[in-house]
């Protein structure tokens, strides 16, 4: 009885809970997807052939089909979509950082009262659904939308610009949607910084921009990394925004995944795409984790 209690102590339970969660909602679905990725397409429900089948009476046959993966490498479409996704995610991350950093910096340096208002304004868009917000951008960017109308009224242009269904519109949508994910970790990071360090740097001969480059920027590295990961990883797999704003030419891996699953009903190929996408992102995650671990393990801040 005593041993039992020790084994199911509160602490063990607390530690076990997140593992159980991950097992149930990450590992299990992953195994299922992995299984499907090795199967063959079939006209059935579900639309793939089982991996395991009884052969004769006592022998279990396992049929692993590698064609799905091979197919991804033979058709150039997939590689292009892959590279394009990474490119879009990378550009979006950089744009988010360039826009988000000054905002986070400004917020951190604002007075406490203004700071809370600004913080609220950053979080406010989350109160409406992302889909609605992306639809709002269609209204803004379309040929007779707000942006074109204003520009024509002002006499800047005479014919409406083709804004919607272009890469430009897609970037606007992605950057707009993910900006808070860069601002919040950066703000949390910069806000903690000791401003006297900047004064010390200026005292030692730094102009303000040099103090920023040599002190503020390196000290906000963790915020930059966290923000980048929070944008890059979901942006690689982004599906809604490229579809709604980017038009037919925005070839992204999320879109391919959707098409394979729902248009082609090619579950095995779609699963293979999903698995490869995951493998692509794992190195980034591990790199980030190792940096985080080094920061927290060492006494050096």
């Amino acid at each position: 009885m005593k041993r039992l209690r020790a084994r199911f102590s509160g602490r063990g339970l607390v530690v076990a809970l997140p593992y159980l969660w991950l097992l149930l909602f990450f590992v299990a679905p992953f195994v299922i997807v992995l299984k499907i990725s090795f199967s063959e397409v079939d006209l059935a429900i579900p639309p793939y052939k089982p991996l395991f089948s009884w052969y004769a009476e006592h022998a279990l046959a396992i049929r692993l089909n590698f064609n799905n993966y091979a197919f991804l490498f033979t058709d150039k479409l997939y590689a292009d979509a892959f590279l394009n996704s990474v490119k879009v995610a990378l550009v979006s991350t950089i744009l988010c950082l360039l826009i988000g950093y000054p905002m986070a910096y400004g917020m951190a340096r604002a007075r406490p009262r203004t700071r809370n208002v600004l913080l609220l304004l950053v979080v406010l868009p989350f109160w409406t659904s992302q889909l609605l917000r992306v639809y709002a951008w269609i209204g803004l960017l379309k040929a007779n939308g707000v942006v074109n109308n204003v520009l024509i009224r002002l006499g800047v242009i005479h014919n409406p610009l083709a804004l919607l269904y272009t890469p430009f519109a897609m970037y606007v949508g992605i950057v707009y949607s993910y900006l808070p994910f860069v601002i919040l970790p950066l703000y949390a990071n910069i806000e903690k910084m000791d401003w006297q360090l900047i004064e010390a740097a200026e005292d030692l001969g730094c102009r303000p921009w040099q103090a920023f480059y040599k002190i503020t920027l390196p000290l906000s590295r963790n915020g930059i990394l966290a923000g980048s990961m929070l944008v890059f990883i979901p942006a690689v797999c982004e599906f809604v925004i490229p579809t709604l704003l980017g038009g037919p030419n925005s070839l992204m891996i999320g879109r391919i995944l959707w098409d394979e699953f729902f248009s082609n009903r090619a579950w095995p190929v779609a699963s293979a795409v999903a698995i490869l996408m995951l493998l692509l992102l794992v190195p980034f995650m591990m790199w980030y984790q190792s940096i985080q671990a080094r920061e927290t393990a060492g006494p050096s801040g």
Binding site: D194, Q196, L197, E199, A200, E202, D203, L204, G205, G301
Partner: peptide, 20 residues
């Protein structure tokens, strides 16, 4: 004259050492 051009240095109460 801004701080970075003064022939003066300061030792801060918090020391303000650069942690990185």
């Amino acid at each position: 004259v801004p701080p970075y051009e003064r022939p003066v240095n300061m030792m801060f109460q918090s020391y303000a050492l650069f942690p990185h």
